[in-house]
């Protein structure tokens, strides 16, 4: 059996709000295999987004270990972590989070500005990413000229343009109608099936979770199933 792409051991996250301490994650241990489409479910405040953020290297645990592709991300400093994120993780957010003054192509190109690729190479990769999500003809549109579903697909293109092994999605369909949600989930599914990407998706929606290859539930910071 191949080594899991994500290995989480005894991960704990405690938020201190004044004198009150809130345990968001309580000794979570979890393995995620390469090529999995994991749906992370649970009620609000269960710690699923916190877990996703720690895996993606944008938050740090109070204790425990999180290894992604063998790298213990909890040990990396700010600069190393930024570099690691750029090369290894693609982000998809609930509110799309595209830069409003940039076109779809320019938004997708953003992570590539940190690489040594030439302008022509960047254009090529952007065109490929937009083609994968079916928006090649919308490259020059600004976010406000796109529908919600199209905006989220641009965000997916931005997440995969650096060809990361891991894509994390935080409620990617939360702001979409059912038709658009279906389209977006279809794109994520094909990324797993055709490109072998590992996808971790936080969702409340059982229908969305059904697109995953595995579902896990978090309850009060602990894995419940």
């Amino acid at each position: 059996m191949t080594e899991p792409i994500v290995q989480i051991r005894e991960l704990t996250k405690i938020y201190a709000q004044g004198e009150i301490q809130v345990t968001a994650l309580d000794h979570v241990t979890l393995d995620i295999a390469a090529g999995e489409f994991l749906a992370l479910m649970g009620p609000s405040g269960s710690g699923k987004s916190t877990l996703l953020h720690i895996i993606a290297g944008v938050d740090r645990p109070t204790s425990g270990e999180c290894r992604v592709q063998g790298v213990n991300v909890t040990r990396l400093n700010e600069s190393e972590l930024a570099d690691w994120r750029n090369h290894n993780v693609g982000f998809i957010f609930q509110t799309f989070n595209l830069i409003p003054v940039l076109t779809a192509a320019e938004n997708v190109e953003l992570p590539l500005l940190l690489t040594r690729l030439s302008r022509a190479q960047r254009r090529q990769q952007v065109a490929t990413a937009l083609a994968i999500v079916g928006l090649a003809d919308r490259a020059k549109h600004l976010p406000r000229q796109l529908s919600g579903g199209q905006e989220q697909r641009v965000a997916i293109a931005r997440a995969l343009v650096t060809d990361p092994a891991l894509i994390v999605a935080d409620e990617p369909t939360g702001n979409l109608d059912s038709h658009s949600a279906h389209e977006v989930l279809g794109v994520l599914q094909s990324l797993r099936q055709e490109a072998g990407k590992t996808i971790i998706m936080v969702t409340h929606d059982p229908k969305a979770a059904a697109f995953g290859t595995r579902q896990i539930h978090l309850e009060k910071g602990e894995l419940s199933a």
Partner: peptide, 16 residues
């Protein structure tokens, strides 16, 4: 702020 947080998430460092 939110956009800058996104840039950070995408890998942009403090100095950038």
């Amino acid at each position: 702020f939110r956009e800058l947080a996104i840039l950070k998430a995408l890998g942009f460092r403090r100095r950038e």
